[in-house]
Design a protein around this nucleic acid. Structure first.
Lengths: 308, 308
DNA sequence: GATTTTCATTGACATGTGCCAGCACGAGTT
DNA sequence: AACTCGTGCTGGCACATGTCAATGAAAATC
């Protein structure tokens, strides 16, 4: 344990060669390499890119102006092995790390990218940070479910984790009302209304979607939104191409942060990108759900080009 | 500029090889190397070690308990080319980066180690941080003078820099009184009393010292402190082996933060180490000038061993 | 106590990186 | 136009790093 630290210090801060360190510690150079590997794995060393730079590129600024958001971070997407949502999660992690302040309360939705992001966060240790689940859980348990996204992020940030102990969807509007009147649920929503930051993904609603596959809703329920012109879903709400929120009776059974309160949150970070998501993201931006966007360069190109 | 960013991202976040990046960008591998170099120089990438680990070692905890301070960071000192104060400055930089909070006001003294520290700070960008000079300047201009230490740190942290526009030593107590009554000086000292953190070095007062060489005081003035049993100087005050503050008429001509206010600052970080400093540091700790100590392992050993 | 499993450690080889001298090109100078 | 200077890019070599199968010591199992 201590050896990892010493090796890391000598290598990364003092710029010593592995061989020198091996001599000092009386072990083989290969072992020094292993110690350094461990140091990286256990995040004893932080190697990270200043995310503000990612928002200074030309593309970022055009998007920022075009959609009147506060900041846009654009990732240079490479043909590496990692899937797109993983790479975006990585940049999202850097962004959150930079934006995080002591005393923050962060509302977290769910999704593949949000989970990926949680996995790439460094272990930070700012005082008095709270991570709160924005949406109730779905019936099925899958890797990127709301409680998992929330608790993963809280763990990495050494923050208080507040899960929402309620289903995401209930059977009738009346049941929702009953739930919402419960003291423990009321407390949770009171906390949510205090959020200083919000974190969510986007999903288009064409073809097979996570919404249906995650047993969050049925194909029929989803279709009813499509019929009303919805093109995407983010932070708990559906919206159409023009950025208008689309509602059906489903909303009355959905236990999630109210739209008015959501829009009050000063910093609302949306992480999302990859092929086929551009249209959905464009509409989401028009709906003013996000103030900060983290995406990839391909999607960013689409966002500025077909100004449709 | 953009290329630096892309290369850095692909290399450090995606783990691509330089050759691959060279292909992508259509340049030679050597150029990619140069871009990465630039990225490191310009601090587009941050490579740093989590300093909390440095305070979890056995040695750190013994010092912490022995001298009743809040935290002690211990550096594994190697026989590398870098001088000791430079290495300690490096660790000090990591510590400050971790402790820094939005809205902080940081009082900065001066010294070789404090300057070294400023040079190793990353470019951070927390809102509303102020760096204030604790002591007036000396007549001679040397590299680690109070205004330089202050402004270097402020620059790196993108913080407001407030220099103290007054000499460190004046010719008589009356002149000090006149200075202290000046509105601009009063404003400065009002700011200092609001400090949330303090940063200073230590110097032993045997042999040729910076105090005399920096033309801060004369050899005779220094000797008068030695005669009264002083063994060190830190954050503007002399103290003896038992940790008692030692005063001479010199104090009445010294323009610096008052002792009572200094001890009110919640986090007082002392950076210092290297051969011959242990005794001075021990006495400084007894004088309760610091709450946080950053030092090297050799000095740390001395601090716990000869419990004199 | 013998046998198997696990795991950290290592030497040696394969690969990636750092460095430097030399080249090409544009800007400023005569 | 010729010259000089400065800057940025590149090829190729020396060296540093990453990888992996083999080794041996400790722990677990029988």
């Amino acid at each position: 344990m201590d050896e990892v630290l010493w090796a890391a210090w000598m290598y990364y801060e003092q710029g010593q060669k592995q061989e020198f360190i091996a001599d000092q510690l009386g072990i083989s150079r290969a072992s020094v390499f292993n110690l350094l590997q461990k140091a990286r794995d256990e995040r004893v060393v932080n190697i990270s890119i200043d995310p503000t730079r990612m928002s200074q590129a030309v593309l970022s600024n055009r998007i920022k102006d075009l959609y009147s958001i506060d900041t846009c971070y654009v990732l240079p997407l490479s043909t590496s092995g990692d899937p797109v949502h993983d790479q975006i999660g990585r940049l999202g992690a850097r962004v959150l790390e930079q934006l995080l302040r002591p005393g923050d309360t962060i509302g977290v939705a769910w999704g593949r990218t949000v989970l990926a992001m949680s996995q790439h966060l460094q272990n930070l240790n700012l005082p008095n940070v709270t991570i709160a689940q924005v949406t109730g859980s779905s019936a099925a348990t899958f890797a990127f479910s709301p409680p998992l996204c929330t608790s993963n992020i809280a763990e990495r940030l050494n923050a208080r984790c507040v899960n929402l102990h309620a289903p995401g969807i209930v059977s009738s509007p009346d049941v929702k009302k009953i739930f919402m009147a419960e003291p423990s649920i009321r407390t949770h929503f009171a906390l949510l209304s205090q959020c200083t930051k919000l974190l969510f993904g986007v999903t288009p609603i064409v073809g097979r979607t996570l919404l249906v596959e995650g047993e969050f809703m049925t194909e029929e329920e989803l279709q009813s939104y499509r019929d009303l012109g919805a093109v995407g879903f983010a932070s708990g709400y559906f919206y159409d191409r023009a950025g208008q929120i689309v509602r059906t009776e489903f909303d009355n059974r959905h236990i999630t942060m109210p739209l008015e309160e959501l829009r009050q949150v000063p910093e609302r970070i949306c992480v999302g990108g990859g092929p086929g998501k551009a249209e959905s993201i464009r509409a989401m931006l028009r709906a003013k759900l996000a103030t900060i966007l983290v995406t990839d360069d391909r999607t960013a190109m689409e966002l500025v080009s077909e100004g449709g």
